[in-house]
Design a protein around this nucleic acid. Sequence first.
DNA 1: AGCGTGACGAGTA
DNA 2: ATACTCGCCACGC
Length: 141
Amino acid sequence: MEQSTELPPGPYELSEALVLTAQFVPRGRAISYGGLAELLGVGGPRQAGRAMSAAPEGTPWWRIVRADGSLPTSLSRRAATHYRDEGTPVKTSPSGPDGGDGLRVDLVRARWEPDEDTLAVVHRLRAEVRTVGPIVSGPAD
DNA sequence: AGCGTGACGAGTA
DNA sequence: ATACTCGCCACGC
């Protein structure tokens, strides 16, 4: 069984929620930074990237990629190892046919789509995210 | 409080 | 396909 439906107690920081959501991406699949944030319903691609850069050990960061399926050059090599191991559909880039940089995940085939249960969990996650959102109050007066 | 920076993304040339 | 611009927004100086 997977580690679904079990979440640490909230509320969560946005970055924490994004990392938790990333944990649900199964082997061999991937999603874009923007897609991850969109799925959670909070934040955007920059926040997702920020969260992944600071993600704790054990986070499958290689499954969160850019919209075009690539990752920063510095991470490309390590990611390639995982893709080979997980059998992730990749696309050979024109400027670098080998596993170095130029490697891109074929999101058309590898894009992760959460099942209903996972979706429910993520939805619950969203509700407990401590957003830094706009200050609405102003009872001041 | 301003300003630059970044594991982004979409649009334009 | 590549290069560059802009919009985005949390962080750190």
